[in-house]
Simulated assay, not measured.
Amino acid sequence: MPAPEDPKMPSSFEGNEEFYETSRTTKLFRRITDEPLIPLGMALTCWALFRASRSIRAGNDRDYTNKMFRRRIYAQGFTIAAMVGGSYYYADEHRARKNVETKVAEQKAKEKNRAWIKELEAREGERLELERIAREEAKK
């Protein structure tokens, strides 16, 4: 039985808690704020492509359509440059964050291991108590 101060014992079969700690939207907004030039380049690319496709459908001037396609290429180049530049510029921050995340994961793994051992010890204690009760009843 669990101790009174510990109403719910941890189980080794519980779900993966790390999965639920950060949601996808939280991670997305963190990435956008970390490197804001990449979403800007993506938005410019989409805008230029959208304008080019509207120009084609409307049958407008070919020069305008080509101009929009060129802008799309420039925006894609900007996005790639932002990705490469950001990876160099933020490399130390990414390494530091990765180290912190690794340490936190190791600490959580140790805590989970301790809780699992505590659970096994409690179950062993229960088993021994049941065996003792069964022996006493067998003697009667």
Rank of each mutant, 00 (worst) to 15 (best):
H94V: 15
R54H: 10
T65V: 13
A58Q: 06
N99V: 15
R72L: 09
G59E: 03
T65G: 05
V100N: 09
A109V: 15
Y74R: 02
K98T: 15
E121M: 04
A48E: 01
R95A: 13
T45A: 03
A58H: 01
C46H: 06
R95S: 14
R114C: 11
K98I: 15
T102S: 11
A75T: 01
F69R: 01
E111L: 06
M68F: 07
T45Y: 01
K108D: 12
R51T: 14
E93W: 06
K67T: 15
C46P: 02
N113G: 13
G77D: 06
R71T: 14
Y89K: 11
R72Y: 05
R62I: 15
Y74Q: 04
E121L: 04
Y90P: 08
T79Y: 04
S55P: 02
A48Y: 06
T79F: 01
K110Q: 09
K103Q: 07
G85E: 02
R114G: 08
A81T: 13
Y74I: 14
D61N: 09
V104A: 12
A96C: 07
L44C: 05
R95K: 14
T79M: 05
G85N: 00
K110P: 11
N113F: 13
Q107S: 12
E119M: 14
L44G: 04
V84S: 00
T45N: 08
A105N: 03
G77W: 02
R62T: 15
F69L: 12
V104L: 10
D61P: 01
A81N: 00
Y74A: 08
K110M: 10
V100M: 11
V100D: 12
A109K: 03
I56P: 05
E106V: 15
A91G: 08
I80A: 04
F69D: 01
Y90K: 11
G77R: 00
A81W: 04
F78K: 03
R57N: 13
E93D: 10
L44Q: 02
Y89G: 09
K112I: 13
Y74H: 09
F69H: 07
L44N: 03
E119Y: 10
L44W: 06
E111V: 12
I117M: 06
G59C: 04
K112G: 02
W116R: 11
K108N: 13
E93A: 07
E101C: 10
Q76A: 03
H94Q: 14
A109Y: 09
S87F: 07
G85Y: 01
D92G: 06
R51L: 09
A105C: 01
D92R: 07
E121G: 04
A48M: 00
M83S: 09
G59Q: 01
R57Q: 14
K118D: 07
E111D: 04
Y64W: 10
M68D: 03
Q107M: 14
Q107L: 15
F69V: 14
K118E: 09
V100G: 12
A48I: 05
Y89L: 12
W116E: 12
Q76S: 05
Y74M: 06
